[in-house]
Amino acid sequence: MAWLTATRWSPYAVGIGIGILSWFTWLISSKPLGCSTSFARTAGMIEKALRGQSAAQRLYYQEVQPKVDWQWMLVLGMIIGAFFAALLSGDFELVWVPSRWATAFGSAVGVRLIVALIGGVLLGFGARWAGGCTSGHGISGTMQLAVSSWISAICFFIGGIVAAHLLYGLLALGG
């Protein structure tokens, strides 16, 4: 069972695993793997709790209802699954600032959190604008050959590659 405690698996083994997993989500649950809708539902639940029914009446939350569904449980399960995978290999660690970030921009927690927050806002806004994320469009939609998903996935990476290069190219501390 050494493979269960290995820190990393071959990306091809993981890709084959995710491909086969997607067969079974369709066969058993009639659902594609996807994540970002669950964040929109959660945002709706929070807004409803804070502002009451006026939030629930928003057109968006009538189309994407603020409730727990199959995909919401999927995302919850992902946290648990990654936790166990990390625990088994001793890879679980509480880290505020990733090492690559710290090398380039220093180890100040506040700076990292602010950039992560801004990145998160754009990510959540863009995912719901595009109607999916790296899973829903990037994996599940592209394998269905959806035009919408191929355009989205290509734009995710164009935007990400440009932003990462600008950030690390222009702003990183010397070297």
Partner: peptide
């Protein structure tokens, strides 16, 4: 939407999944 997402992806370094 994909490009907005992409910029967020580059700043955050994680995606929703």
């Amino acid at each position: 939407g994909g490009l907005i997402f992409g910029v967020g992806f580059g700043l955050l370094g994680y995606c929703p999944g």
